[in-house]
Design a protein around this nucleic acid. Structure first.
Lengths: 156, 156
DNA sequence: CTAGAATGGTCAACGTGGTTGTCGAAAAAA
DNA sequence: TTTTTTCGACAACCACGTTGACCATTCTAG
């Protein structure tokens, strides 16, 4: 919306503002639908757990944090009723982390909200410009974009 | 780079990956130029302090955190040699936080690195598509993009 | 088969950055 | 002048990350 020259420092600010606006709206929506306690970090963790469950060590690898940190996140998720630990009969060392129905619900709901939010961006920009934006971003960040390793990047 | 239909959840991931890639490269560069201790949160805080200095309370307002949290950040910045507190002769309650020369250096360096990084994106995308991306983001996030309130969003 | 290495989970201590609540001193407003 | 507001600090606490250590179990070589 400006043909003025842009500063380099605006780019990260714009990206962050976009990201944050989506995440903030997601969590406002989640809070309105029975999940007020969920934080962004929990969403990432649940996404990494997935439908099949995962061990705490593997979760740590997927999220790019130590297994201890992953274990703590699972503790919180479990305390909030979103995940549970199940012993693995095939390997007495492992404890599978699985999403509870509540956790699955939150994940499904998040997916729906993200679709809705993308729709709003499409209304604002037009499908064309939105796709352009996504493609441009994918060009510069590459497939790394879909790694969930957001270590330490999330808070309230 | 894909004419397939995109999922809503990809958008925040792409934005975050872009943001993070810039910030990570910035701090790698800063570390290589004598500022290995700086964290993203410090950059935001120093930006908010600016050339004129600011009180801890005002800093908190600018960053969207409590004055206590802002005070702690100033403590950390001061311990690292990037900021200092100066008593305000005109108001005995206030203590002006100011950047030290080291702090100013880091800020100037950051600005230069961001220009360089934007240049790399321009090489990849072309000036046209980069400007399109910036404009599209500004359209959806509005002027709010340039608020520095990133409460709790930063870590390592 | 058994000894050693690798893996998984947990405990402890700690660092950083956030929150509230409280408080006294100083300034501003009534 | 009295009351209210503001500023900076202290304390207690929470969330989320880190290392290091440890034990139990499983895998892998010899």
């Amino acid at each position: 919306m400006a043909d003025r020259e842009r500063w380099g420092f605006e780019l990260p600010l714009l990206l962050f503002a976009g990201f944050r606006s989506l995440i903030d709206q997601l969590h406002a929506e989640l809070a309105d639908h029975g999940h007020p306690e969920l934080r962004p970090v929990h969403g990432f963790a649940m996404q990494a757990v997935g439908r099949d469950g995962v061990t705490a060590s593997e979760l740590g690898r997927r999220l790019g944090v130590s297994k201890q940190a992953a274990g703590k996140t699972v503790d919180r998720l479990a305390a909030l009723g979103y995940a549970e630990r199940v012993s693995d009969p095939a390997d007495a060392r492992r404890k599978l982390v699985r999403l509870t129905p509540r956790g699955q619900d939150a994940l499904v709901l998040s997916g729906a909200v993200f679709e809705e939010l993308r729709g709003r961006w499409a209304d604002r920009l037009g499908q064309e410009r939105l796709t352009e934006l996504e493609d441009a971003l994918e060009t510069v960040v590459g497939p790394a974009a879909f790694g969930l390793d957001a270590a330490g990047w999330f808070g309230d």
